[in-house]
């Protein structure tokens, strides 16, 4: 019962966090500087998200050589090809190959 309530509360809070600006700003004029700020949310959150996945909670960088090589390939392939599938495939191939060679 407690678990169900906790899940429901988290679910409601999560929906709220996704809906609040989409619904509150539906009919408002959004000032230009705010619009500019919003454009920067995407790249900023995603960069922060990637780093969060790569570090331990103590702030130690976890990646070794295979990870670094694969991330470099990711950035390069994504930038040149603009193709997400190709990027994932080549990056993971790099990750596994460098990992096998380094082991």
């Amino acid at each position: 019962m407690t678990a169900l309530l906790a899940i429901l509360a988290t679910g409601l809070g999560t929906y709220f966090s996704r809906a609040v600006f989409i619904i509150a700003l539906a009919r408002r004029r959004i000032p230009p500087y705010l619009r500019t700020a919003m454009e920067y949310i995407g790249p900023s959150v995603m960069a922060a998200l990637v780093v969060t996945m790569l570090i331990s909670p103590e702030g130690n960088l976890m990646p070794g050589l295979p990870e670094v090589a694969a991330l470099a390939v990711t950035a390069l392939v994504a930038w040149r090809s603009r193709n997400n599938l190709l990027t994932i495939v080549l990056a993971m191939a790099t990750f596994w190959i460098v990992g096998a060679l380094a082991a």
Binding site: P43, S44, A47, V50, A75, W79, T87, I88, A91
Partner: peptide, 22 residues
């Protein structure tokens, strides 16, 4: 997972200030 997000991040960068911000 981080590979996928980094890829989408880079694909979405259309001018240099966004790269600096990231």
């Amino acid at each position: 997972v981080p590979v996928m997000f980094l890829g989408l991040l880079v694909i979405g960068i259309d001018r240099w200030p966004k790269a600096v911000a990231a």
